[in-house]
Structure formats: structure tokens, C-alpha cells
Computed example of a mutant assay.
Amino acid sequence: MFRFRREDLYQMNIINQYIYDICLTSLFKKIKRIFKQQKKFVLLEMVLTKFVEVGRVVKINYGPQEGKLATIVEILNDKRVLIDGPTTGVQRQVIPIRRLTLTKFNLKGATRGARTGVITKAIKKNDPIAQYQNTLAAKKVAKKALRAKLTDFDRFRVMILRKRRSALLSTQLKALRKNNAGGKLAAQAKGGNKKK
């Protein structure tokens, strides 16, 4: 079995460190050169804006209370939080984070472990539920629920109305194209729109 002597290992370590330093300095030189050429620094914005934090308004996406809004009151660990939704009928409970959908609303005035009364006052003051109802996500959910309630005859009426709408749109589009094409022909007849 071949073994390195201590002096050989020391020499190899020095050589490896030297090579590492050369590569690192050349990399830094390249980066400096790129920044000097660019002359402008672009500030990057944060991609994530919704964090699991105390006071974050969340929507429950699984379980018997699916679709209801609540507020994070306490973060227990990286997988579970304590939520409370006194105005939406969600009792104070521990729930996994994967069963929650974070909204962009944060309840001001909610502190760690806040009692239900404090949460209720903060909700009445900020009213995040009304703000959430105006978001695209809430409108999409409401539209889906409305479509689920339609009867067979209602779906038939929707089909007929869609056909009428598409027929009106196509006739209007044809008229616009005809007017636009006529305008181009008249301009060409007058001598305009020529290639020079």
C-alpha cells in the first residue's frame, strides 16, 4: 500500500491552496471587468412577498373549513402554525402550513399569541376579508362555485349566450377589417403607402 509522507501532503496542500487562490482571483477580476463594462447596476426586487408570519391572513385549502379565512397567531415550528378566525367561524387551532394558502394581506396589530379579542379588533379595523373578496383569486373561486351550482338548463342557456356573443364579435371584426382594408385600398389609389 502506497502512503504519502507528511512533507508530501503538506506540499500538495500548499499547491492546491495556490491553485485555488489563482482561480479565485481570476474569477474576481472577471467579475470586476463585467461590472465596469456594465456601468449600471440593476437592483433586484425580492421575488417572494408572502411569508409565514404572525398576523398573515391565510385561506384554509383543505379540511372541513376549506375556503375560510383565518389569521396566523403563533408559529409553532417549520410545519405547523396556530390560527384564529373569530369573524369567519374558524376556531383557534393548530394546523399544518401545507393546508394553508397565504394571502397578500397582513393584519396590523396582531402580535404573537394574541387573544381572540385582539384579533377581532384588528380585523374590524383593517377588514382584510373585504379586501380579499376584491382579489382575482377570490373572484375566481366565486365563479367556480357559481358554475358548480348551475343546472343542466342553466348550462344550456350559457352555451346559447356564448354562441350569440361569438357571432356578434365575428361580425364586428369582419366589419372592422373591411373598413380597414377599404382605407388601405383608397390610400394606395391616391398614391400613398408606396415603397421608396
Rank of each mutant, 00 (worst) to 15 (best):
P128Q: 00
K139I: 03
A130H: 08
M12T: 04
L168N: 07
N180S: 11
L173T: 05
A189K: 07
S26R: 10
V94Y: 03
V158G: 05
G63Y: 04
V54K: 07
I160C: 13
R98G: 03
I60G: 01
L150Y: 14
F41A: 15
T103V: 00
T101W: 12
M159A: 03
I15G: 10
T71I: 15
R3S: 14
R6L: 09
R147N: 11
G63P: 06
I160P: 03
K59D: 04
V47P: 13
K30H: 14
V42W: 05
Q91I: 15
K149P: 02
V141T: 13
G192A: 09
Q65C: 08
F105N: 00
L107A: 01
A145V: 04
K149V: 06
R92L: 03
K195W: 05
Y62A: 15
T111H: 09
L76G: 01
F51I: 04
V47G: 15
K50L: 14
R56S: 08
L169C: 11
T101L: 10
S166D: 09
I97S: 01
R165Q: 07
I15N: 13
R5Y: 13
K59N: 15
M46R: 15
L43W: 05
K184A: 11
K190R: 12
I119V: 05
R157F: 12
T71R: 02
T103N: 01
I129Y: 08
Y10A: 08
F51V: 05
E45I: 12
K125C: 10
G191K: 02
F156H: 09
D21P: 00
N126T: 00
G183E: 07
S170P: 00
N77K: 00
R33K: 08
N193K: 10
F105R: 01
L9P: 03
K124I: 14
A110D: 10
F2A: 13
V42Q: 13
K139D: 06
T71G: 02
I14C: 07
M1Y: 12
G55F: 02
K108C: 06
L24W: 08
T88Q: 09
T87F: 05
L176I: 06
V94I: 13
V57H: 01
N180Y: 06
R92D: 00
V52Q: 11
L24P: 00
K104G: 11
A175M: 10
A142D: 11
K121Y: 05
R3H: 12
Q133W: 07
D154H: 08
R164H: 04
R115A: 03
K29M: 06
Q38V: 13
G183P: 01
R177G: 04
A175F: 05
E74C: 02
V57M: 09
I15S: 11
Q17S: 12
V81Q: 00
V90Q: 02
A130G: 07
Q93P: 02
I83A: 00
V52E: 04
I15F: 07
R177Y: 14
A145I: 04
Y132R: 02
R5Q: 14
Y10M: 09
E53C: 11
V47M: 09
Q65T: 14
K140L: 12
R33W: 13
I72G: 01
A122P: 04
T25G: 02
A181S: 11
L169G: 08
R98W: 11
Q93W: 05
Q131M: 13
I72C: 05
K50M: 12
E74P: 00
G191L: 02
G85W: 01
V141L: 05
L168G: 06
